[in-house]
């Protein structure tokens, strides 16, 4: 088997005496979708932000394709090929859609400090191609802050894809979206990452989304790993059912997996 794209070992973080993440380890294989699920306060976001560089772990190691990235700032991690989307979409609201994506290209080609060229004209074709792929090309000239929320999420995905990352970090990618949009956005994401061989690490509350797309699941509770494995194994794990899924969660998982098959 090839080397995992992301390798997390013994990650730990405490806030003022409360342990948020307690010695969590996992691996994301190349081209796979890996989901972290668990109740609120289980440590999903903390875990996520330590991988993405927003938080500094107390202990443990994060490796990207064999390279230690623990404690690097997000901008360095991005340069190593990690794209990121946020729970509440973060875009440049006073720029147009295409300028948002152009910014990612300008940064990738290290031209941020240029004082003379017109930014609006740089890497436009490349940016349009990415927007085309996420279905936002027709809204390229609109101001990002005025888009519907589902569309903003697509722009965010386009930004994250711009520098051809090998890993996408998506924190609750479908939060705040309507059920139909959720499925559509995750289906789009899954298509793109599979065609390009990108790996995805994501957290999610919507069991329909999780069980429809994840290849591997990690269940956290109070900072600890409760279970990890395939969707089947996790769904059938009694401990997971007790602390998290409940009857309705299992039902949703069932539904999603049937649709998938």
């Amino acid at each position: 088997m090839s080397e995992p794209v992301l390798q997390v070992e013994g990650l730990r973080k405490a806030f003022g005496g409360v342990i948020a993440v307690d010695t969590v380890s996992f691996e994301v294989a190349a081209g796979r979708l890996f989901a972290i699920i668990g109740p609120n306060g289980a440590g999903k976001s903390t875990c996520f932000n330590m991988v993405g560089g927003q938080l500094l772990p107390d202990a443990g190691r994060v490796q990207l394709a064999g390279q230690d990235i623990t404690g690097l700032p997000p901008r360095r991690i991005w340069r190593l090929g990690v794209g990121r989307t946020f729970q509440v979409a973060a875009t440049f609201t006073a720029m147009t859609v295409v300028e948002n994506v152009q910014m990612a290209f300008i940064s990738h080609r290290r031209r941020l400090r240029a004082l003379l060229p017109t930014a609006r004209k740089l890497y436009r074709a490349e940016a349009m191609a990415v927007l085309e792929r996420v279905g936002m090309a027709d809204q390229a000239e609109r101001q990002c802050g005025l888009l519907a929320y589902g569309d903003i999420k697509r722009v965010e995905l386009a930004i994250a894809l711009a520098h051809e990352p090998r890993l996408l970090l998506m924190d609750e990618p479908t939060a705040g979206m309507a059920p139909k949009e959720r499925i559509a956005l995750m289906a789009l994401t899954a298509d793109i990452v599979r065609e390009r061989g990108i790996s995805v690490l994501f957290t999610e509350h919507d069991m329909d989304v999780v069980f429809a797309h994840a290849d591997t699941l990690l269940v956290l509770d109070r900072g600890r790993t409760v279970a990890t494995g395939t969707p089947d194994a996790v769904r059938d794990n009694p401990e997971v059912q007790r602390i998290y899924l409940g009857g309705s969660g299992v039902e949703a998982a069932q539904r999603a997996m049937e649709a998938r098959a």
């Binding site: 609120n40 939060a175 007790r242 602390i243 409940g246 009857g247 969660g249």
Partner: peptide
Amino acid sequence: EGLAPVIVE
């Protein structure tokens, strides 16, 4: 919104 399935129950 945003709650684990068991908490929703």
